[in-house]
């Protein structure tokens, strides 16, 4: 049971108020700034690749709203997952487990920003993008955090969709709709998420076990996880090249993404081969780090080409 659920069952009259301890930087930490920066980047690429144009001020508003919406999801995720966060080494210093912000304060903060960002995007840019952002936040908080994360080892696969929506929301801010091209941007992040997180989960397995989160290595075992990392990597590589075949990226992108995809698969195969000891850990860490570089490079290349084409 999550901390939020436990608190609901408590007698509120007997609880002591221990809020008001959070500083501005603690609230900023609730927004998961590092995740937010990735969201800003991918949403911006989606916006730049979309056909048509958007006024720079409205474009800035759209990126701001998407970023705040992503931050709000992060705050709501920390509100619900405080019990998990306090037992995992990676997350124990987050504001709620550290006692700086109460779960109620985090919930209020997250909800205010969610509603604010959705309404602002709808009012100032377009309502399709606003509704899409609302759906993304709801998907991440309700479907992933509250429902799937604690109940299925496929949590990362389906939950990863929430992290893959921002370029589509960016695209929708310009066009007022979705298209096959923006769906491919979604697919790239969607297929990238499982090998990225499972590589991390393989060497942080103990943490997830302690927290009772059914990550794939904990539930299905390390061998099965290695199979799945390889399968997803093999599926990801051609999807990474798809923008070239669909005609909205150059041959340079096609060749570069092809090589990057091959390197991704080679590292996934390395994880599959090396199963014991320090070499196995190093292989996981290498793929985890490379996966971040891979995604960044794909989107940076797409962005670079759209900027060059725009000159």
């Amino acid at each position: 049971m999550s901390l939020a659920e436990r608190q609901d069952l408590m007698d509120h009259s007997s609880t002591v108020w221990n809020g008001g301890e959070g500083s501005v930087s603690d609230y900023v930490a609730l927004l998961k700034p590092r995740v937010m920066s990735l969201v800003i980047f991918t949403a911006f690429v989606g916006m730049m690749l979309a056909p048509g144009s958007i006024h720079p001020v409205l474009g800035t508003v759209a990126i701001l709203c998407i970023a705040i919406g992503a931050g709000a999801s992060g705050a709501l995720n920390m509100w619900y997952d405080a019990d998990i966060d306090e037992v995992m080494s990676r997350t124990a210093k987050r504001p709620i487990p550290a006692g700086k912000i109460t779960p109620e304060e985090a919930f209020a903060f997250g909800m205010t920003l969610s509603i604010g960002s959705v309404l602002t995007l709808g009012l100032l840019v377009n309502w399709f993008a606003g509704a899409f952002l609302a759906f993304t936040i709801a998907f991440y908080v309700v479907i992933y955090t509250i429902w799937l994360k604690r109940s299925t080892p496929q949590n990362i696969v389906i939950g990863g969709a929430a992290g893959a929506f921002p370029p589509m929301v960016g695209w929708a801010s310009v066009t007022g709709g979705v298209s096959l091209e923006s769906f491919v941007l979604f697919l790239i992040i969607f297929m990238w998420t499982p090998p990225h997180f499972w590589a991390l989960a393989l060497f942080k397995k103990g943490d997830y076990e302690t927290a009772g989160v059914p990550m794939l290595p904990v539930v299905a075992g390390e061998t099965n996880t290695r199979h799945q990392i390889l399968i997803y990597s093999i599926l990801l590589a051609p999807i990474g090249v798809a923008p070239y075949f669909m005609g909205y990226a150059s041959l340079f992108y096609g060749v570069s993404s092809g090589f990057l995809g091959l390197a991704f698969v080679a590292m996934a195969a390395d994880i599959w081969r090396k199963r014991e000891g320090d070499v196995a850990r190093k292989a996981c860490l290498r793929l985890f780090k490379f996966s971040i570089f891979y995604l960044f490079m794909l989107f940076a290349l797409l962005l670079g080409e759209s900027l060059v084409a725009g000159i």
Partner: peptide
């Protein structure tokens, strides 16, 4: 301390 933090918020 709480008053200081409230002011900065």
């Amino acid at each position: 301390e709480q008053k200081k933090k409230r002011r900065s918020r």
